[in-house]
Amino acid sequence: MAALGHVRETYWEGCGADRRKYVKRFRGLVRAIPTRKQEARARHLNVPVSTLSNYWSGRRVPRAKALSAMYQALCRSLAKDEMPVSLCELEQLRSSAAKVSRDVKAASNVSSRMPLAGPETPALLSVPGSGAVPAPRPAADLRNVPSGIVGQTLEALNQAQAAGNRRGVLGISWSASKAMTTEELCATVSALDEGGSVDLAEAVLLGGRERSQADSMRLALALIAAGQTSYAELVMRSALPPELL
Results as ranks from 00 to 15, higher is better:
Ala3Arg: 08
Ala3Met: 05
Gly5Pro: 07
Gly5Glu: 04
His6Lys: 14
Arg8Tyr: 14
Trp12Gly: 02
Trp12Thr: 00
Glu13Trp: 12
Gly14Thr: 07
Cys15Ser: 15
Gly16Arg: 14
Ala17Gly: 02
Asp18Asn: 12
Arg20Gln: 10
Val23Met: 04
Arg27Asn: 13
Gly28Asn: 05
Gly28Gln: 12
Leu29His: 04
Val30Ala: 03
Ile33Thr: 03
Pro34Ile: 03
Thr35Gln: 11
Arg36Met: 02
Ala42Val: 09
Ala42Phe: 05
Ala42Arg: 10
Ala42Thr: 12
Asn46Ala: 11
Val47Gly: 03
Ser50Glu: 06
Leu52Trp: 12
Trp56Val: 06
Trp56Thr: 00
Pro62Tyr: 03
Arg63Ala: 06
Ala64Tyr: 03
Ser68Tyr: 01
Met70Glu: 00
Met70Ser: 00
Tyr71Met: 00
Ala73Thr: 01
Cys75Arg: 05
Cys75Phe: 02
Arg76Gln: 02
Arg76Tyr: 03
Ser77Ile: 02
Leu78Cys: 13
Lys80Leu: 06
Met83Leu: 15
Pro84His: 11
Val85Cys: 00
Cys88Gly: 10
Leu90Asp: 02
Ala98His: 04
Val100Phe: 11
Arg102Glu: 10
Val104Thr: 06
Ala106Lys: 08
Ala106Glu: 05
Ala107Met: 05
Val110Gly: 03
Ser112Ile: 08
Ser112Cys: 05
Ser112His: 04
Arg113His: 09
Pro115Asp: 02
Pro115Val: 05
Leu116Ala: 13
Gly118Tyr: 05
Pro119Arg: 06
Pro122Glu: 04
Ala123Ser: 14
Val127Asp: 00
Gly129Met: 10
Ser130Lys: 04
Ser130His: 11
Pro138Lys: 13
Ala139Gln: 12
Asp141Asn: 08
Asp141Gln: 12
Asp141Thr: 13
Leu142Pro: 07
Gly148Lys: 08
Gly148Thr: 14
Val150Tyr: 04
Val150Glu: 03
Thr153Tyr: 09
Glu155Trp: 05
Ala156Tyr: 15
Leu157Trp: 06
Ala160Gln: 12
Gln161Arg: 15
Ala162Tyr: 12
Ala163Tyr: 10
Ala163Asn: 08
Ala163Ser: 12
Gly164Ile: 11
Asn165Pro: 07
Arg166Val: 14
Arg166Lys: 12
Arg167Trp: 15
Gly171Lys: 11
Ile172Met: 04
Ser175Cys: 09
Ser177Trp: 05
Lys178Met: 13
Met180Ala: 15
Thr181Phe: 11
Glu184Leu: 07
Cys186Leu: 01
Ala187Arg: 11
Ala187Ile: 09
Ala187Phe: 10
Val189Ala: 03
Ser190Thr: 11
Ala191Tyr: 04
Glu194His: 13
Ser197Arg: 06
Val198Cys: 07
Val198Trp: 15
Leu200Val: 07
Val204Leu: 05
Leu206Gly: 06
Leu206Ser: 09
Gly207Tyr: 01
Gly208Ala: 03
Gly208Leu: 05
Arg209Cys: 02
Arg209His: 01
Glu210Trp: 12
Arg211Lys: 07
Ala214Cys: 01
Met217Gln: 15
Ala220Gly: 04
Ala222Met: 08
Leu223Glu: 03
Ala225Met: 10
Ala225Tyr: 13
Gly227Leu: 12
Gly227Asp: 14
Tyr231His: 06
Ala232Lys: 10
Leu234Thr: 13
Leu234Ser: 11
Val235Cys: 04
Ser238Met: 03
